[in-house]
């Protein structure tokens, strides 16, 4: 097995008494696409800052590209591409200038930066916008420009913190397509998300994080197999009735979760569970049979939904 590009052992980051990251360990192999999945405040972004060598760990050990961030911060950062949660493009500069200026920060010669900038504007589908002001771009375009900027140094690892949060579905799909291309080219991706569909699309492997600790680790399909059933039946009886009905159907399926707005019945065969409910004389307002997702894994592990 090739030497991992990121090795975290018992990593801890505390703010006064509060441990944002509370002893997490993971390894990321070169070319791998690794995800940190968890709700807001789980410690994902803090982990990203630690790996990004812009935050000093409180405890544990961390190596990025074989280097200790405490000692080799700028060196590690020279090989990373960082896409932060909130865009921090320079709005005083034009689109193209944002890339030119950023390339210089890596000590790259002007001509090389200019060449790379043109390639990346094409990659980000922003060639027409090269001379636009940043504020004139749509949310999706700004994200693509931020990703282009993160790629200016041809990084070994690309860190993406909630890359598609706040984007409309079309913009998300365009972005996923670009990220998938990077993955195909062999770029190592480390991404955080609280969207399970995003994690399923992009991650080879992921860890589920909650309250600064790792709850589970594995490939998306493997996690679903381990922590959930094949199918899920979702039924709604109306907010007032869900709890009562849940008592009546207790014992159906492998497991039942009652959420404020619906009941989830985990089962190998959702349709047959629905038949049993109807046979019991109950009439749901809506019903839906779907495959289990990472959302269900998270619910199982933490008792909470990802987006609350």
């Amino acid at each position: 097995m090739p030497e991992p590009v990121i090795v975290a052992q018992n990593l801890v980051k505390k703010y006064q008494d509060f441990a944002a990251v509370d002893g997490i360990s993971f390894e990321v192999a070169p070319g791998e696409s690794f995800g940190l999945l968890g709700p807001n405040g789980a410690g994902k972004s803090t982990t990203m800052r630690l790996v990004g060598a812009v935050s000093t760990r409180t405890g544990g050990d961390l190596r990025v590209l074989g280097l200790d961030p405490n000692r080799y911060g700028p060196e590690i950062r020279s090989r990373l591409g960082v896409v932060p949660q909130a865009d921090n493009l320079d709005t005083e500069l034009r689109v193209r200038e944002n890339l030119l200026v950023y390339g210089r920060y890596f000590g790259l010669p002007r001509a090389q930066v200019a060449r790379r900038t043109d390639e990346l504007l094409a990659f980000a589908q922003l060639e027409d916008k090269a001379k636009s002001k940043v504020d004139a771009l749509s949310g999706g375009m700004k994200r693509r420009l931020t990703i282009a900027r993160a790629l200016i140094n041809d990084p070994s690892i690309l860190l993406l913190d909630e890359p598609t949060t706040g984007l409309d579905p079309q913009a998300r799909h365009i972005l996923w397509d670009r990220l998938f291309r990077l993955k195909e080219q062999g770029t190592t991706l480390l991404l955080t998300t609280h969207y399970m569909d995003e994690a399923e699309q992009l991650c080879d492997r992921l860890v589920v994080i909650d309250n600064g600790v790792i709850m589970a680790e594995g490939a998306p399909a493997q996690l679903i197999r381990t922590y959930s059933s094949r199918e899920v039946l979702e039924v709604r009886f109306g907010s007032d009735l869900n709890a009562d009905v849940a008592a009546q159907i207790a014992g159906m399926g492998d497991r039942i979760e009652v959420l404020p707005d619906r009941i989830l019945i985990y089962s190998e065969n959702g349709e047959s569970e629905l038949v049993r409910i109807v046979d019991a004389g109950l009439t749901p307002i809506t019903s839906l049979v779907r495959r289990s997702s990472l959302e269900d894994v998270f619910l199982r592990l933490t008792g909470r939904t990802l987006i609350e």
């Binding site: 950062r77 493009l89 920060y105 890596f106």
Partner: peptide
């Protein structure tokens, strides 16, 4: 307001 310092620092700039 437009946190470019964080962007610089995410690159090798100290």
């Amino acid at each position: 307001w437009n946190p470019v310092f964080f962007a610089m620092n995410a690159a090798p700039i100290q």
